[in-house]
Each structure stands twice: as structure tokens, then as C-alpha cells.
């Protein structure tokens, strides 16, 4: 083997090793998320639906062999509720970031590619939305639309939207002024093609990162709304609702609130871990 080949082989092994290390760094988060997603789609695999039935004889029991995470104020098994509540809890967060990301993308492109006045108008609207505290925007929306997952999604999306609008616009403007796009314009490439092939990818990537990182914010804000009474309807199996139900018994039956709280925490941490890993990988790729 020549020296060069040996060096190359050594380099390949080194980069393979570092790739391996990087993947390992994010593996726990991915594992947790896989579990969570499975629980969302196939709760029956993890728990029995029958345990969701209220049981007056089993109110507020501590964790035990029979009830792994204890029971709540209506005697329902908390572990089962958390499992069956995964889908609803996550769907709210996912829908929020998807809609916000999409709007951010579209509006960003419009702002970057469209006429100046459109850009200015969009910036003003963003600033107006930024002036309000997020939670209060979401509260007002749910106050109008009534409680329930749909309203919560719309409310939280509206509240978190400014950040996406701003990101979309910023990166769109940045991309627009790169050499590629200038050249394409000069060469007469149609606007739409410029948008799709050159600008959209550079807007979409940071937005994607924002979406992953924003998931936690979305879910936590939704839980905050529920706590204040303007979120999900009471009684449904959803983590925010469960946290709100147990809030008067933290002193003695702390598991009612805290188990759902931990579920939320773990999921959000895993997602944000993943998000930061994606962000760093994307950054590294760009360098």
C-alpha cells in the first residue's frame, strides 16, 4: 500500500470514526423519539385501554406494581393515560410547527422575492405580532375559538409565528443577494425557478431547524394554556391536561402532575437535542 493510499485510508477511518461518534451523540434522543412516536400511533402496544376507566375505589394511589405511575383523581391509571395521551399531545405540537414553518416559508419567499412594499408590509405585521407576549396571543385566540385541540393549534401557531416569519424573510433576503441568484437573474432564469431551486432550499433549511427546536415551545405553550383553563378540554387524555388536574395535590399526590410533566420534559428534551444536532450538522455541511 502506498503512503498516500495509507493516509487516505487512515483519513477515511478517522472520518468514519467521527461520523460514528456524532451519530452516537444523538442516538439516545432518537431512541426516545422512536418510542414516543410508536406510543402515539400504537398505544395499545404499550398499555391496555381498559385501564383508562375511572375507578372510584382507586383514587390518587401512589406508584406501585399494579399502577406503575400511580392513579389520578378519578382513579385512572396514569401510565395508561400518558401512553394514550401521547398522540394528542404530540399532534398539537407537530401541527403547530408544520403550519408555522409552511407559512414562514411561503411568506418568506414572498417577502424576499416580491416587491419592496410587500417586504415592508410583512415586516410591519411581524413586528406587530412580536409586540404581544406569546402566551397572551394564544390565550386571546382560544378565548375566541373556544377550547379544544383545534383552537389550541391555531392559537399557539399564531403566537409562535413571528419568529418563523422573520426567519423566512431573513434567509430569503440573504439568499436573494447571493451570486447564484444574481447570475440566474441576469441569465433570464424565470423567477419561479429561482425561487424553487436556489432560494427555497436555503430558507427551508433554517426553518426546518426552527421547527424542530420550536416543537418544545409549542407543546409547552399549549400546556400553559391548559393550565390557565384556556387550552385543551378537561378530562381528555393529554399531558398538559394531566398536569393541570393534579396541581392541588402536589404536596401529597405529586405523581398526578409530575409523571405527565416528566413525559413532557423527556420528549421535549429529546426533540431539542435532535434539533440542535441537526442544526450543527447543517452548519458543518455549509462550511
Amino acid at each position: 500500500m502506498s503512503l498516500i493510499t495509507a493516509l487516505q485510508a487512515g483519513q477515511q477511518r478517522a472520518s468514519a470514526a467521527s461520523t460514528w461518534r456524532r451519530l452516537l451523540a444523538v442516538a439516545p434522543a432518537v431512541l426516545i423519539l422512536i418510542l414516543v412516536v410508536f406510543a402515539a400511533f400504537f398505544p395499545g402496544l404499550f398499555a391496555e385501554e381498559a385501564n383508562l376507566r375511572p375507578n372510584p375505589g382507586a383514587v390518587a394511589l401512589p406508584p406501585s406494581a399494579e399502577h406503575w405511575l400511580g392513579t389520578d383523581l378519578s382513579g385512572r391509571d396514569i401510565y395508561t393515560r400518558i401512553v394514550f395521551g401521547t398522540g394528542l399531545t404530540l399532534s398539537v405540537g407537530i401541527r403547530v410547527v408544520l403550519v408555522a414553518g409552511l407559512i414562514g416559508l411561503v411568506v418568506g419567499l414572498l417577502a424576499g422575492l416580491g416587491p419592496r412594499w410587500l417586504d415592508a408590509a410583512i415586516t410591519r405585521v411581524t413586528e406587530v405580532l412580536l409586540a404581544f407576549p406569546e402566551l397572551l396571543i394564544a390565550l386571546a385566540v382560544v378565548a375566541i375559538l373556544g377550547r379544544g385541540p383545534e383552537s389550541v393549534v391555531i392559537g399557539v401557531t399564531t403566537a409562535l409565528l413571528p419568529a418563523y416569519l422573520r426567519q423566512g424573510r431573513v434567509y430569503s433576503v440573504l439568499a436573494r443577494s447571493t451570486g447564484f441568484v444574481e447570475a440566474a437573474k441576469v441569465l433570464g432564469v424565470p423567477r419561479r425557478r429561482i425561487a424553487v431551486r436556489h432560494i427555497m432550499p436555503s430558507v427551508a433549511r433554517p426553518l426546518l431547524v426552527l421547527m424542530i427546536l420550536g416543537f418544545g415551545s409549542a407543546v409547552t405553550t399549549a400546556a400553559g394554556l391548559t393550565f390557565l383553563g384556556l387550552g385543551m378540554e378537561s378530562g381528555v387524555d393529554e399531558w398538559g391536561v394531566m398536569m393541570q388536574e393534579g396541581r392541588n395535590r402536589l404536596g401529597d399526590a405529586w405523581w398526578i402532575t409530575s409523571m405527565a410533566g416528566f413525559a413532557l420534559l423527556i420528549t421535549v428534551v429529546a426533540v431539542s437535542w435532535l434539533g440542535r444536532w441537526v442544526a450543527r450538522t447543517v452548519q458543518r455541511g455549509e462550511r
Binding site: G216, F227, M243, L250, W254, T257, S258, V269, S272
Partner: peptide, 23 residues
């Protein structure tokens, strides 16, 4: 850090109150 960011404010408040104030 991510744990701190992820913790819902009201839960933190409830837990802090429960442990350090009422407890």
C-alpha cells in the same frame, strides 16, 4: 440547558411553591 428550556414554567412554579413554600 435543554432541560431548563423544556421545563414548563407553571410546573416549575408549582413544584417550587410546593417544595419550598408549602413544604
Amino acid at each position: 440547558e435543554p432541560v431548563a428550556v423544556a421545563a414548563p414554567t407553571f410546573w416549575l412554579a408549582l413544584t417550587l411553591a410546593s417544595v419550598f413554600s408549602y413544604g
